[in-house]
């Protein structure tokens, strides 16, 4: 038996970057197998080294195409890269087509790149529940950069801020995105704005609108004013790659700013609190719900509520009173 301070064979392999072991652990975490949680506990203390970058934006905004180019940009700087690409699960069948990877397949044979597709499996907020866990696994593998591509839902995908150091919001001209962005509160989450598909009409106008919105912002935490970066058309490789290099530089600058201003600590702390919250929910609420479901109590309660004999709020208080002593 190995004790807590000694690495298991599995953990040694992951630390050495073994793809098969790491990808299996991610899957076991996604499937919520108890032994995977045990491993996660052990590897957690080795995490916190990677720079995690979230990429969000409406469906078809060109996120995957951009991530593909970002991988190349970081590889040029000799950074290793892990990618978590999230696509939606069908609410009807529970199945999913994970298509982000198509755009990144040219990196498939590069040992310095690990791309993993994740289905949302019902999670809201544009991510999958296992994203946080998967980030830890890639981190322990030693990936320098971890890129997370959210589902393209356009709104309410602010969950990404709980997992990233740097959030990139990808906007496209001519989609009414600027208005969507304000509505969805996306202005507030962006550390860097990307205006994608610069071959489309209206990209200058969109850039100007964004700039003037930023000019109206009262102050920027840490003095970081989110840059607005125009990415050239992906069909013109030279300008495209040039602008993506510029983006890679801005990403590095942002991380340095976080470090220098102490904001990095704040973000890590926010992330830690979210993780504690999620873990508590798993540790407290999930077993209660399971017990109530298995005993048939849940069904009986639903009946009572249906007949208006009681209400969900009173029942929640009763149940809480029973469990929380």
């Amino acid at each position: 038996m190995s004790n807590n301070t000694e690495d298991t064979e599995q953990i040694k392999k992951i630390k050495a970057g073994d793809v098969r072991t790491a990808s299996r652990l991610i899957r076991n975490l996604e499937d919520e197998l108890p032994e995977a949680k045990t491993t996660l506990k052990r590897i957690f203390l080795h995490t916190g080294k990677a720079h995690v970058v979230g990429i969000t934006g409406s469906p078809g905004a060109g996120k995957s195409t951009l991530v593909d180019a970002m991988i190349s940009a970081f590889r040029k700087k000799e950074k290793t890269v892990g990618v978590l690409a999230v696509d939606p699960t069908s609410p009807f069948t529970g199945g999913a087509i994970l298509g982000d990877r198509i755009r990144m397949q040219r990196h498939a044979e590069d040992a310095g790149v690990f791309v993993r597709s994740l289905a949302t499996r019902g999670a809201l907020g544009g991510l999958s529940k296992a994203v946080g866990d998967a980030v830890h696994v890639l981190d322990v593998m030693g990936k320098d950069m971890i890129l997370i591509e959210t589902v393209g839902t356009g709104q309410q995908e602010v969950e990404i801020i709980n997992h990233s150091h740097t959030v990139i919001v990808v906007l496209v001209p001519g989609m009414g995105d600027e208005i969507q962005a304000i509505k969805a509160g996306i202005m507030e989450i962006a550390d860097i704005f990307v205006i994608n598909k610069a071959d489309r009409d209206g990209s200058n106008q969109l850039a100007n609108e964004l700039m003037s919105m930023l000019n109206m912002a009262p102050a920027f935490p840490g003095g970081w004013r989110p840059p607005v970066i125009k990415i050239g058309s992906c069909f013109e490789p030279q300008t495209f790659n040039q602008s993506v290099d510029e983006l890679a530089t801005a990403i590095a600058d942002h991380y340095r700013c976080l470090e220098e201003t102490g904001l990095l600590g704040d973000r890590m702390k926010r992330k830690a609190m979210v993780e504690i919250g999620e873990a508590l929910r798993d540790a407290i609420l999930t077993p209660v719900l399971r017990e109530m479901t298995e005993s048939g109590e849940m069904d009986a309660i639903a009946e009572r509520i249906l007949k208006r004999e009681s209400d969900p709020y009173t029942i929640a208080e009763e149940v809480a009173g029973r469990y929380l002593k």
Partner: peptide
């Protein structure tokens, strides 16, 4: 699409893949 509709999670790699790319992606995606 049929696999998705049957409830599976499907990774589609697109066309023009080398066997090396396919094997490597299959392992990364487990």
């Amino acid at each position: 699409r049929a696999f998705r509709d049957a409830g599976y999670e499907v990774i589609y790699t697109g066309c023009h893949q080398t066997p090396e790319q396919i094997a490597s992606a299959a392992v990364q995606e487990d």
